[in-house]
Design a protein around this nucleic acid. Structure first.
Lengths: 249, 249
DNA sequence: TAAATTCCTGCATAAAAACGCAGAAACCGG
DNA sequence: CCGGTTTCTGCGTTTTTATGCAGGAATTTA
């Protein structure tokens, strides 16, 4: 087999599977590992693959993952934010949790919107504060440095006192069996309280988090009124949720 | 599984859930904890995650910082901050107001200090949050967008409930006749409550503000225990205050 | 304060890469 | 077709890298 042939084959494999092992290539093509290594070296120098210890990776694999602004999946989150905002009307009382999806929503709120936002999430509060027409109610208590949100019995008691029109939860994991789940006990308590204090419960989740779960349950699916992802409502992944009685946007 | 692959997976998980545990990763990927730890270390060195005890955090979520530049008279305020800090001991409960002088103090707190800080000032809270050993209690209520502090009856009621060891007030104006004064009615109410809930009241003021006054009185001079400015304690400007029974630092 | 995790350091091992070399193959101008 | 040259390939040897493991230190939790 000719050198060019070999390299074409390798490149094909890399683009197909996003990764190749030198060991399996040298069995496939039946040449020595050195030869494979030299081929990978050349392809790497031409920038066609990324050579790593043990094989090579496709270029797309490595590069995509680090967006400049630092917010992960920002585009998807913007889409979600737009859908979420359409649910908010003037004069509403809105409860929100923390999380980057909520943050994206906070940033996208239209300037004319007049509403009252209630939250214990510091980053979210910072965004709401910059908004010209929103009244901001901060739920006080001890601050959890991890999640940058107030947690504790005081916070929960305060949330119980309010009766909000709608509640937006940044969702870490949702699946059919466990409902919405999370990994921080205190945050879970808080989210439970928020759900109980709201007429309507809206879950915001990027599609990647759909059909995953975490150790602690927040609530069963039945408690959720609306689920928002960046996908169109009729996407097959979301079908079971619609069938479970959740309104999918 | 290749090293880069693993790291890409880890990065993905971190960005998805804002946090990962080394323990769960090493089950997921089926490698030793050491390997995970080394991966996290590398990713941390590349600035892609923040490594913490037991796992790692997403970077995007973790850097809420208030613009620290453009602080007026920063050098003087640093001096004041140093003096103020000398009054804080381990284990104390500390009430603080808002204001840039308080902020400067918050930034200068020694990392080993273990204490509980209570405040309704968002910028101050942000600083306290970054401190490794400080417990932060956030006083909740409606947020005043001007002063970036929670105001209202709830906030005042909460402050009344605490009995702090010491209270630091960023002071807008102080003079012999009117005591300490300010120009925001709601903030004044809050500061009054803070003074009443503390064993000791400390006023932080740059010398420029000494012997000036504002429309609304917070408290008469007698209520103040300690006054801190950037000047040496024996500066003639401060003499009348010392004579009025205030300890001047 | 005691117990349990988690972390770090150094070491051992195995896998992979780099290097030098030599034989084989291809190329090439007569 | 034929030396001479270049390129390619495979094989040992040496280096580097990746990973796991053991212990003791540090940190967290109860």
């Amino acid at each position: 087999m000719l050198k060019k042939e070999r390299q074409a084959y390798i490149l094909h494999q890399v683009n197909l599977h996003n990764k190749v092992l030198s060991s399996s290539l040298c069995i496939d093509i039946n040449v020595s590992e050195d030869t494979i290594r030299r081929d990978l070296q050349e392809l790497a120098e031409e920038g066609k693959v990324i050579k790593v210890h043990g094989g090579a990776l496709s270029h797309s694999f490595n590069d995509v993952h680090f967006p400049s602004n630092g917010v992960y999946s920002q585009h998807q989150k913007k889409t979600i934010a737009q859908k979420a905002i359409s649910l908010i009307d003037n004069g509403m009382f809105v409860l929100t949790s923390g999380g980057t999806t909520i943050l994206e929503m906070a940033r996208s709120l239209p300037p004319q919107l007049k509403a009252t936002f209630i939250s214990g999430s510091i980053p979210a509060i910072l965004e709401y504060m910059h908004h010209p027409n929103i009244d901001v109610i901060l739920v006080g208590d001890r601050i959890s440095k991890n999640s940058k949100i107030t947690v504790g019995t005081e916070a929960i008691a305060k949330i119980r006192q309010v009766k909000a029109d709608i509640c937006f939860l940044g969702t870490n994991a949702i699946d059919l069996q466990h409902g919405i789940t999370d990994n921080d006990w205190e945050v879970v308590q808080l989210k439970k309280a928020m759900m109980e204090s709201s007429q309507k419960v809206v879950c915001l989740a990027i599609a990647e988090k759909v059909n995953t779960f975490q150790p602690i349950q927040i609530a069963a699916l039945e408690k959720i009124d609306i689920l928002i992802t960046e996908l169109p409502p009729d996407d097959p992944i979301l079908k079971p949720y619609a069938e479970a009685g959740i309104k999918v946007l």
